[in-house]
Amino acid sequence: MSKRRVIPGFGLSMGFTITYLSLIILIPLAALFLKAARLSGAEWWAILTTPQVIAAAKLTFGASAAAATVSTVFGLLVTWVLVRYQFPGRKFLDAMVDLPFALPTAVAGITLTAIYAPNGWIGEYLAKWGIEAAYSPLGVFIALTFIGFPFVVRTLQPVMEDFGSEYEEAAATLGAGRWTVFWRVIFPMFIPALITGFTLAFARAIGEYGSVIFISGNLPLKTEILPLLVVGQLEQFKYEAAAVIAAAMLMASFALLFLINLLQRRLNWQNH
């Protein structure tokens, strides 16, 4: 420490922050990994390759990826319209984008079920077409899209707001059409934010529980998600199995966020 610190409170804030972080987050998470680490590799393999876990993992990761993709497309459209255009109700809709963040997941869950159930507002019409929305993988996808899409909007919005018009003007002066300007000039600038938004939505979707379990119907091997299996193992007092599934899920989430960090650094570095 070469320079004396002018502002006081380093020791106090450091002490409190580290202690609290350890007690609430680090020690409990460490306990989970220690519990899971007591089992051998073969036991891990046995737990993670049961048909139930494999089916749930396929559904969780598949529906999460699909939902995050659709969220990204919707998010790009909605952000573009909210940032670039003026129209009545814009501020209201902008505020409502955060609804999935603020609405408790259980409320979202029962409400989406009420809408997409065979006798629901939208489900009724889908049923006529022979589409089963609630109590099917499609329902899981709908709930995860609802949960994930604000992440894309809120990641992209500040980038789009800061995006000056000089590049577009330059491109247009050079004779590029609007469509070319969008795909060749504007869109590439948004790619890092879109990837971040996608990943945040995807990571959130993997762990999502409350909004999914009502609309999915929890049919064994068909519409069970990984978090539900963790709860199921716990209810049978199989702590080790619950810890192993949870540890595997956490490692997937952490790896995903780590990858995105690397990718972001790469892209930022290229842009500069």
């Binding site: 409990p28 998470l29 306990a31 989970l32 519990k35 997941t105 990571a203 959130r204 993997i206 762990g207 999502e208 529980y209 409350g210 990984l226 978090p227 539900l228 963790v230 709860v231 716990l234 702590y239 619950a242 810890a243 949870a246 899920m249 956490l250 989430s253 952490f254 966020l257």
Partner: peptide, 14 residues
């Protein structure tokens, strides 16, 4: 933020 709510409950049960 990266931890499933279910896991946030599980750690305390463990």
């Amino acid at each position: 933020f990266a931890v499933s709510p279910v896991i946030a409950g599980l750690v305390w049960v463990l």
